[in-house]
């Protein structure tokens, strides 16, 4: 790993001030550190935000669950409040990586990295999340831009993610058996205001499948999905799964998710 200057920021203001186009914020480091070791990334400055107290924790209000950016996957998975308000979100966190990754990895790190096969981005889409940064509040649909790309600026720090509590929801994924990343993952959520179907792993970036959401709006049952055509065009194709297989699995796992709601 190439060397860098390590900084531990005491507050968000300091973290943002230290940041540049040649720096990275460090939360759990579950992607950043291996990426630096593999030579896929290098930075002049690593700005650790883990010790900033206000970035961690879970708050429930009447209609939303707000999770601080540096809250660990294991904390979300075991939170009684999250299990009660949005059980599918706690279950998603429990399915990320392995126990040691869940003991370090954070929700803010996951969405800032926007890995096309990460789990949390689909939750942000399905649960109408608002991403609060030190500058602004961003709708999830606008936040995720493309493969490993978000609308965040280099000095912008995610502070918290606010999820709407749905009437019903379920996240179902076909995990890669080695990494537990999603080969495909489907997050179905029924809100008073409408239905979202967040899909991860299938394309270069998470998306809300409007065709599936439309069919489920008319009839919220897994049989309603039978008639929806899922095109494999634009879907990922790799040693784990072809694009046709992924398209088929999107349908199968969407049905599974609806049945589990």
């Amino acid at each position: 790993m190439k060397t860098f200057n390590y900084h531990s920021a005491k507050d968000v203001k300091e973290a943002s001030k230290l940041a540049s186009s040649n720096s990275a914020f460090l939360a759990g480091g579950m992607t950043t550190i291996p990426s630096m070791k593999l030579g896929l990334a290098s930075y002049k400055d690593i700005i650790d935000i883990k010790r900033i107290k206000k970035l961690s924790g879970i708050k429930i209000s009447g209609k939303t669950v707000t999770i601080g950016a540096t809250t660990k996957h294991s904390e979300v998975a075991s939170s009684k409040d999250v299990k009660k308000a949005i059980p599918s979100l706690a279950a998603l966190a429990e399915g990320i990586g392995d126990p040691q990754v869940r003991n370090r990895g954070t929700i803010g790190g996951s969405i800032a990295n926007n890995d096309p096969a990460a789990d949390y981005p689909s939750a942000c889409i399905a649960l109408n999340a608002t991403i609060h940064t030190n500058n602004r509040s961003i709708d999830a649909e606008k936040f995720f831009r493309g493969m490993f790309e978000t609308c965040l600026k280099s000095t912008e720090v995610i502070e918290a993610i606010e999820f709407s509590i749905p009437q019903k929801s379920s996240y179902q994924k076909l995990p890669n058996p080695a990494s537990r990343y999603a080969i495909i993952g489907v997050y179905v959520a029924k809100h008073k205001t409408g239905i979202n179907v967040g899909i991860t792993g299938a394309k270069s970036c998470v998306y809300n499948d409007k065709d599936l959401a439309g069919a489920l709006t008319k009839n919220f049952s897994s049989s309603a999905i039978d008639s929806v055509k899922i095109s494999s065009s634009g879907m990922n194709s790799d040693i784990h799964a072809s694009s046709d297989y992924r398209a088929n699995m999107v349908k199968a796992f969407a049905k599974k998710a609806v049945d589990a709601c």
Partner: peptide, 13 residues
């Protein structure tokens, strides 16, 4: 008290 992977934690932190 918690298990972690020591290859992916910076000592400085």
């Amino acid at each position: 008290g918690k298990s972690i992977k020591s290859c992916t934690a910076l000592a400085a932190d």
